[in-house]
Design a protein around this nucleic acid. Sequence first.
DNA 1: CCAGTGTTCCATAAAACCTTGGAGGACGGT
DNA 2: ACCGTCCTCCAAGGTTTTATGGAACACTGG
Lengths: 230, 230
Amino acid sequence: MGDRQKKAELFEQLARVGKALGNGKRLELLDLLAQGERSVENLAATAGLGLTTASAHLQVLKQAGLVLTRREGTKIYYDLAGLDVARLYEHIRTVATDRVAEVRQARDGYLGTDHTLATDATQAQEVGRDELLAMAASGRITVIDVRPVEEYAAAHIPGAVSIPLEDLHQRLAELPAEQEIVAYCRGAYCVLAYEAVDLLRTQGRQARRLQDGMLEWRLTGLPIDVGEAA
Amino acid sequence: MGDRQKKAELFEQLARVGKALGNGKRLELLDLLAQGERSVENLAATAGLGLTTASAHLQVLKQAGLVLTRREGTKIYYDLAGLDVARLYEHIRTVATDRVAEVRQARDGYLGTDHTLATDATQAQEVGRDELLAMAASGRITVIDVRPVEEYAAAHIPGAVSIPLEDLHQRLAELPAEQEIVAYCRGAYCVLAYEAVDLLRTQGRQARRLQDGMLEWRLTGLPIDVGEAA
DNA sequence: CCAGTGTTCCATAAAACCTTGGAGGACGGT
DNA sequence: ACCGTCCTCCAAGGTTTTATGGAACACTGG
């Protein structure tokens, strides 16, 4: 094998990871896995894919070394291979958003333009991570996790209460009326917290969204809790 | 357009960048561009691609926002869109190498297994970036850049002398006999510096390779010089 | 304004990829 | 041992990339 050919082979192998990241469905799966491990069936249902399709995509991610599997009885759980993978995902997302106008358009279309405009008004809706820690420590705010319970169980911000978005309206009574509420969800591209804040405000509550979400929280190395109870 | 569909659209857009990174030829083009801007013809020739093929690949990279073009007279020069792109490339390379055994095999096959084994002996051949700066400042070493002259001109380590690998043998006399020589090239996956060190040693010189190369040097934010003269 | 160079655009054929359904394998429960 | 569940593997199809020539375009220099 010639030198030229070996070089091509090396780049072709490197491209394996790129290929794995080069499909919307797979990115969506990674996005879900960034919240914690899940079974194939769960992933397929959540991402709206056929079982075999999801399995095939997961296989590609596995071949690229991005995810790992763990068997528990009859189920197989997939999880990110490591925090470096989450970091890579976040990195590619940042570059895409910074460099491609169409990505920003698609994001605004999904999240709602009003949320993503970087006006002073919107900025005020967001709480920084350090700010959250400080305010939570002094008991000035209540932090709620509006993701599905299973994601809360996999990893959540210490002290946060789990109230999935769909339950929020009927569980309003659990939240102190006089305290500001900070909601968070999966990450920068997740709508749940935006909608939670909107809902709370229409109910006359003081509410803000945490800047980004769980993915970015983990990437900055901040502490997390695991388990179901609050 | 439903929520589900908008979400799919968002991920599909994000995947554009992944797709661009999901092809060996394109990664090779990025690797070359990480050294500095080049014309299409130059890129095609260096990467061993047909002119139209190279152009098509560059178009994909451009659509993904990874490269920019600049016209100068009759030629069009491509360049990385920014340091963030180089960082992303480096990131994907690191994850691929860490997580996929086949990538390591391909790398060893290209660079030569003897170079990549992390033994104490090989470690001693490598000079750290800070170490290089310190030794160069005190005049204890001569730093040579063994890449093609055009890449040296685009960006090089301050104080380094340009001696392309192919000229090295006949220009040995330019190098001080009693001083240690440090050679560098494009980056972690570039063979030139390895071969330069091998050549120098067989000629009885003291020689070591800089850890990684120009790409990583730039990413750590260290200073560079631009231009032809030494 | 013309000729010449360098690059992109277009059409086409070959290759690779995605999806889907069905067969098969591993495990737990009975 | 047998069945049900969950997942992977395999094969077939339809769709999307990729490579490669030739035509078209943009710019420079005369």
